[in-house]
Amino acid sequence: MITAIVNVRTDGRRIPEIAEALADLAGVSEVYSVTGEVDLVALVRVRRHEELADVIAGGISRVEGITGTTTNIAFRAYSRHDLESAFDLGLD
Score class of each variant (00 low, 15 high):
14 R>V: 07
64 E>R: 04
34 V>Q: 03
40 L>K: 12
54 D>V: 09
6 V>L: 00
78 Y>R: 08
70 T>L: 14
53 A>I: 13
54 D>Q: 15
21 A>S: 15
65 G>D: 09
49 H>N: 02
16 P>H: 14
36 G>Y: 07
90 G>E: 00
47 R>S: 06
54 D>C: 07
73 I>V: 14
69 T>S: 12
8 V>I: 10
60 I>F: 10
53 A>N: 07
48 R>M: 05
4 A>V: 05
67 T>G: 07
34 V>I: 15
20 E>Q: 15
51 E>M: 10
83 L>H: 03
1 M>I: 03
76 R>M: 05
80 R>P: 01
59 G>H: 07
5 I>M: 13
92 D>K: 08
74 A>S: 09
46 V>W: 08
42 A>Q: 15
82 D>W: 13
72 N>R: 14
79 S>M: 06
69 T>P: 02
9 R>S: 11
81 H>I: 15
83 L>R: 04
81 H>P: 03
38 V>E: 01
72 N>G: 06
64 E>G: 08
7 N>F: 13
47 R>C: 00
47 R>N: 08
11 D>M: 05
23 A>C: 09
75 F>I: 11
24 D>I: 00
69 T>N: 04
66 I>K: 01
89 L>P: 02
12 G>R: 15
92 D>C: 01
19 A>Y: 07
86 A>I: 14
52 L>G: 09
43 L>D: 01
74 A>T: 01
73 I>P: 05
66 I>H: 02
49 H>E: 04
4 A>W: 06
76 R>Y: 03
10 T>G: 01
66 I>C: 02
18 I>E: 07
52 L>S: 03
30 E>I: 02
70 T>M: 06
57 A>M: 07
79 S>G: 07
29 S>D: 03
85 S>F: 13
7 N>T: 15
90 G>Y: 11
52 L>E: 04
74 A>Y: 05
62 R>F: 11
3 T>Q: 04
32 Y>A: 01
8 V>S: 08
45 R>P: 01
54 D>E: 11
36 G>Q: 08
71 T>A: 03
79 S>D: 00
35 T>S: 09
28 V>Y: 11
35 T>C: 11
9 R>A: 13
39 D>A: 12
27 G>D: 07
65 G>M: 12
76 R>A: 07
22 L>I: 07
75 F>A: 05
13 R>G: 14
36 G>F: 06
59 G>S: 13
61 S>P: 03
86 A>Q: 04
92 D>N: 14
25 L>F: 14
33 S>C: 03
14 R>L: 12
20 E>Y: 02
38 V>M: 06
81 H>E: 14
62 R>G: 08
76 R>E: 11
81 H>Q: 15
50 E>S: 13
16 P>N: 14
80 R>N: 00
59 G>C: 04
61 S>C: 06
